[in-house]
Simulated scan of single mutants.
Amino acid sequence: MARFSVVLALLSSLLLSSCGFHLRGDLPLSHFPAMYIQSERHSELAALVAERLERNKVELLQSYQQTAPMLQLIDDTLERRTLSLFPNGQVAEYELIYKVRYALTMPNGEPQQYQFELFRDYQDDPNQALAKTKELELMLAELRQQAANRIMRQLARLH
């Protein structure tokens, strides 16, 4: 019976590793031993991407070197679009649109530009302004986390 358990565990681990499964946040970035990140000063998205790169054992360079890739975070913006109104004409619900544009320049290569959008619905209540402001901040932080994860997945796909 114990032997069957060991064989089952080995078979399961073999199956998971052969299908490309990785633990969340653990991406194969061995093709990027070092990288330079260019962004606006104090960019929260850049800080999140840098944290994830370091966690995946990518050395972050302090200045641009032509022998290493450069990740340029061009911009990240939050827009909102009205989805519905209260009977009195005040906005009841927004759609938040978080747009990210970035470029990756490989050594001796041309910059490859990427962009994507993330969407969230947000219900507004003028009677709960302070709570809704905090909720909006939390949503924006979550959108930045998802954007950083998406950039990392894109980097992991490149070879």
Score class of each variant (00 low, 15 high):
R150L: 04
R55K: 09
E110D: 12
R153A: 10
N88V: 14
R52F: 08
L130F: 05
F4Q: 04
A46W: 02
M70T: 15
L14A: 09
Q146M: 05
V7A: 11
E137P: 00
S5R: 03
E117M: 03
L45G: 08
L83Q: 06
L85V: 14
Q112F: 06
Q113N: 09
L16K: 00
Y64N: 12
K132A: 02
K134L: 13
R101I: 14
Q38D: 12
R55E: 15
L85E: 14
P111M: 05
S30N: 15
G109T: 05
K99N: 11
M70E: 14
T105D: 04
Y122V: 02
M152R: 03
R24P: 09
L71T: 02
S39E: 12
Q146R: 03
L29P: 09
M106W: 10
D124T: 10
N108P: 02
L78K: 10
L23Y: 11
A68L: 00
Y102V: 03
S30D: 12
T133W: 00
V100W: 00
A147Y: 01
L60D: 02
L130W: 03
A131V: 02
S18N: 07
L130Y: 10
Y98Q: 01
A47T: 15
S63P: 01
T133G: 02
Y94P: 02
N127L: 08
H22A: 15
L104H: 02
S12L: 14
E59W: 00
M152V: 06
T105R: 06
S5T: 04
V100Y: 00
L10F: 07
L158C: 10
L143D: 06
Q123V: 13
E142C: 00
A156S: 15
Q128H: 00
L104K: 00
S12I: 10
P107R: 01
A103Q: 12
L155W: 01
R55C: 13
A68H: 09
R80W: 04
C19D: 04
M35Q: 05
I74G: 04
H42M: 14
V91C: 06
L78H: 12
A2S: 07
R3G: 08
H159E: 15
Q90I: 11
L136Y: 00
A47I: 09
N108C: 04
L15H: 06
Q154H: 13
I97F: 00
Q65Y: 10
S84F: 08
E95R: 02
L140T: 12
L78C: 12
L16T: 06
A34C: 07
Q65A: 09
S43Y: 13
R81V: 00
R157E: 13
A103Y: 09
E93M: 12
L60P: 03
F32C: 10
D26K: 13
S12Q: 07
N149W: 08
E79V: 08
